[in-house]
Design a protein around this nucleic acid. Structure first.
Lengths: 219, 219
DNA sequence: ACCGGCATCCCCAGAACTGGCGATGGCAGA
DNA sequence: TCTGCCATCGCCAGTTCTGGGGATGCCGGT
């Protein structure tokens, strides 16, 4: 059975040439095309395509929002963003919204067809530099700050409990030490982290963990 | 100029067949091969290859650790993990350690060659299902808890400042309102989030952000 | 017109935290 | 051996939070 594809793209010429490409290739068929997000949201659920090619830059609502609303209705449908945007913000937003592929419009037709095939087979086709940017988001591992490194094991333990919102008394119970000891550990933590409150310390603590793979564009 | 490739793989037969594949293909040359992480760490910096194919399952130290130590010395060298492991933990660890590609050993030779070319051209080749798992890590967007949703704009603003460790007084100054107002907002935040301290609220807050794209394997 | 939610302000008391000042003992490195 | 770091404990004063109780005005929906 051929792969059923829907196209969402405002430029009529681009839309037509994509449709021609898909219908003209064995194993693919274009079952619908849409010039706006509104039209896509209304019509695509009826067609239940295997794959959607989605432009980001649509008149009115943008393609990312369109994916976000479409995907819950069509969990089996795979969406490939097809766009000129290479900035990480667009990429991450699109993927978070539910897209599984991200191709640049300049992609040659044969590669576009294999991207459709790949996404339908359970993969996530992405143009080379896009993939690299995504992978790099895993590598922005802020090396543990010297500050955090210098915490003793016991202090780190206290900080973990502190981050969970426990009171000094409760931390003491959990660690089988007195309130006074917890108090001392915490004073040392504050000195080492250069903070002056529990919340600042926790923010630094969670911030570290977080920055190991953050959502925000930082590439 | 052909692409210089080093191989790290403990199985002599696999190593030899990879070397044969690479040396037998125009545009590629295998400049070294290594049967252990220790050997690779010692020798590869001398060869300065363009691309390293790295097995994960090595005797002694594992491939991921090897990448972590190698990459800082050779920032221009791209590493492709070549392994049988498909679990997200291995994938994320490898990428965080500095690998830029991740291919399964079952990959057919022609695709392996194009993966080498792709990584050298600035891409991040990944086997289909691997790529999908990476993309899914962006989609595990815990839907904003109803609790967090119910915060009013002003309350959310307070929570943000709270998370940065500001005192009530400082929040008031930053928001141009009185201490009393901040106090009231915070009481409302605590009610809505079902917490009883600033730190718990912040942990919930940062936890949300964090879970939008977390490092830990959750697929 | 009324009710609910929001944003703004006020007072108060008790609990929790912050940051000084100690102290002891253990253990590892110079 | 002596010095430094760690973990454990103590006291005390001052500050900040927490959680009650109010209040006003605005706005939007029924």
């Amino acid at each position: 059975m051929s792969i059923a594809v829907s196209i969402v793209e405002d430029d009529a010429r681009v839309r037509a040439s994509l449709a021609r490409l898909i219908d003209g290739s064995a194993g693919y068929r274009c079952i619908s095309n849409h010039s706006s997000a509104e039209d896509a949201l209304r019509e695509i659920p009826k067609f239940r395509p295997d794959v959607v090619l989605m432009d980001i830059n649509l008149p009115g609502a943008n393609g990312v929002e369109c994916v976000r609303q479409l995907k819950p209705q069509l969990p089996g449908t795979q969406v490939i963003m097809l766009t000129v945007y290479q900035n990480t913000e667009h990429i991450f937003n699109a993927l978070a919204a539910g897209a599984t592929g991200y191709m640049l419009k300049q992609t040659p037709p044969p590669e576009l067809l294999s991207a459709i095939k790949e996404v339908h087979a359970g993969g996530s086709p992405m143009s080379g530099h896009i993939a690299r940017k995504i992978v790099q988001s895993f590598q922005n591992t802020a090396p543990l700050s010297a500050e955090a490194q210098s915490l003793s094991p016991r202090e780190a333990e206290v900080l973990d409990l502190l981050a969970k919102g426990f009171l000094y008394k409760e931390i003491g119970e959990a660690m089988k030490v007195s309130y006074a000891t917890v108090h001392t550990h915490i004073r040392h933590i504050y000195e080492k982290l250069h903070v002056r409150s529990r919340t600042e310390a926790v923010a630094k603590h969670l911030g570290q963990k977080q920055s190991r793979h953050e959502f925000a564009p930082r590439i």
